[in-house]
Design a protein around this nucleic acid. Structure first.
Length: 420
DNA sequence: TCTGGGGTCCTAGGACCC
DNA sequence: TCTGGGGTCCTAGGACCC
């Protein structure tokens, strides 16, 4: 068994560079929603010492000193490029699991020259999309991950690395292993385990006693025993969450109601896009978790019958929020989580509500169709509000190059400008 | 006062991932 | 002052059953 992990290099930054060549060869970072933390960094920015996830205010001095280009995240564009890349991978590889927006596992079984295949794939993705990718090859998914890490870290020519010698594990820090996070790394180090090779050498009994089965699985994968198969992606997700931090603090219930209605509406769109219905919902809120006057809470409701009707779900969301809301706090965030998801075509009908249900499905489909055709929020629910003053910060967002006619780049002589 | 052993189900919270 | 969003999986502990 052999797996490959295709991973885009500095993905969000690479996407921005596809549409703006001026960003090449200069330090660039892309911020999280609400312009909070650096979640993607160009190699130049990494070298300047910008850590993954560092809050912008903590790296302000580096940004100023080295003139780092700071961009807000532009997820529609990244999602679009991601879909193109995954499409290319699927058209060449037999079995693919899209693991995240910028990563995919490939089962290499049946491919004769695996390294050659991967080097070709790197070139094809590069020439079709302009996004550089690296590929790691290994006997298990965990080893493919580690191989990918090496390919990037050592700037391997051809950007493909095959981890076929266990000697390599001695050079990999235990914290760099997939599945070993900060907590486990510390714990392992306190036991004298610093490298992947040392972790792989621990006894099963010891790991099970001190840690758990998840760590044991990781260790077995390091030894070359595949424990994590490629996932069947037709399986539904367990839940759908939509939540954002506000661009400002909110004290009044009405603005909170707008926000929760907006997120509930977005969650319903995601739900219907996957052909699912939900059986229940959480609403949660908090004041931000860093100050002194912290309040956080959540509530759950089980729906009377499964639904994907935005009107019903907004109604429940507002009711839950009303119960959670305490006057006097300055809120930073609210969110909804839809749970108990099941396919819409096998749903159980409320025996009294069948006609209502057909009506609801028709209405929602019509709303979705109109918005898909004419742009999102062509029709929206009034409860979601129109001014949305609480909207998150996004001060340096690039245009929606791939999703809006008026933002499509126009090439002029030699340089690139944006058509308006 | 004494008050077992085994099971299930649910929830909250922790840890991890990108 | 400012510190993301969206997920999954596992475990511990409580409630409840016989």
């Amino acid at each position: 068994m052999m797996f490959a992990l295709v991973d885009c290099n500095n993905f969000f930054v690479s996407c921005e560079r596809v549409f703006n060549p001026k960003l090449r060869n200069v330090p660039v970072i892309v911020l999280s929603n609400n312009d909070g933390c650096a979640i993607a960094r160009s190699n130049e920015a990494k070298q300047l010492g910008v850590a993954m996830g560092s809050p912008l205010f903590k790296i302000k001095h580096l940004v100023d000193k080295h003139k780092i280009v700071v961009l807000s995240s532009n997820f529609p564009v990244y999602g679009n490029l991601s879909a193109r890349i995954m499409h290319i991978i699927r058209s060449y590889a037999p079995q693919v699991e899209v693991y995240s927006v910028d990563e995919a596992f490939i089962n290499l079984r049946g491919i004769p020259d695996k390294e050659f295949f991967c080097r070709q794939l790197v070139k094809i993705i590069d020439s079709y999309t302009g996004v550089p990718v690296s590929i790691g090859i290994g006997k298990t998914r965990t080893l493919a991950k580690a191989a990918n890490h090496i390919a990037k870290k050592r700037s391997i020519a051809g950007r493909v690395f095959c981890l076929d010698s266990m000697q390599e594990l001695q050079k990999i820090d235990v914290g760099d292993i997939w599945g070993i996070g900060r907590r486990l790394e510390k714990h392992l180090q306190s036991l004298g385990v610093y490298t992947a090779a040392e972790l792989a050498g621990l006894s099963d009994a010891m790991i099970k006693k001190v840690f758990n089965v998840v760590v044991l699985r990781t260790v077995r994968e390091l030894r070359g025993i595949s424990c994590i198969e490629l996932q069947d992606q037709t399986v539904n997700k367990g839940q759908i969450m939509v939540s954002r931090s506000f661009g400002m603090r909110i004290k009044d219930l009405s603005a909170m109601q707008e926000a929760v209605s907006t997120y509930a509406s977005t969650a319903c769109i995601k739900l219907r896009k996957q052909g699912l219905v939900a059986g229940g919902m959480y609403v949660f809120l908090n004041t931000g978790l860093h100050g002194d006057d912290v309040y956080k809470n959540s509530l759950y409701i089980e729906f009377e019958s499964v639904t994907s009707d935005t009107r019903i779900i907004i109604g429940h969301a507002k009711q839950l929020l009303q119960k959670l809301f305490r006057v006097g706090y300055a809120y930073k965030k609210v969110g909804v989580i839809l749970t108990e998801l099941s396919p819409g075509d096998t749903m159980q009908f409320d025996i009294f509500g069948h006609d209502n249900h057909l009506h609801s499905e028709k209405l929602m489909r019509t709303v979705d169709d109109i918005n898909n055709l004419l742009g999102r929020d062509t029709i929206q629910f009034a409860a979601a509000g129109f001014t949305k003053e609480w909207r998150m910060r996004s001060n340096n967002r690039t245009p929606n190059y791939t999703g809006e006619w008026k933002h499509i780049p126009a090439v002029t002589l030699g340089d690139l400008t944006v058509a308006r």
